[in-house]
């Protein structure tokens, strides 16, 4: 894909993300952060693609490490966020 389009995607995502996240109240900043942890695990997609093409054993091992690390982020991040958010209760 054209580098120009990729840059536009990067800038657009940053701006939209910035706008939406500004509206998250400080009450929820800890779960926001752990949720963002989970999202940064999206690297797992790159890890799968890189591992898919791997032929050498060393590359396969590296790929597995990357997938495991990113998956810890995705699953650990979303689960702990869910756990925290369920604790926030309204009065009565």
């Amino acid at each position: 894909m054209n580098i120009g389009i990729l840059l536009v995607i990067f800038i657009a995502a940053t701006l939209v993300g910035y706008k939406l996240i500004s509206d998250v109240p400080s009450l929820l900043h800890t779960p926001l952060m752990s949720g963002m942890n989970a999202l940064s695990g999206v690297t797992v997609l790159g890890a799968i693609v890189a591992t898919a093409a791997a032929v050498m054993l060393s590359s396969k091992i590296l790929g597995c490490i990357a997938i495991v690390l990113a998956m810890v982020n995705v699953v650990g991040g979303f689960m702990v966020t869910d756990r925290m958010l369920r604790m926030f209760k309204s009065k009565g």
């Binding site: 995607i9 995502a13 701006l15 996240i21 963002m36 940064s40």
Partner: peptide
């Protein structure tokens, strides 16, 4: 896109 959102946050 997703990485950029995390970066912004």
């Amino acid at each position: 896109a997703v990485g950029a959102v995390v970066g912004a946050s």
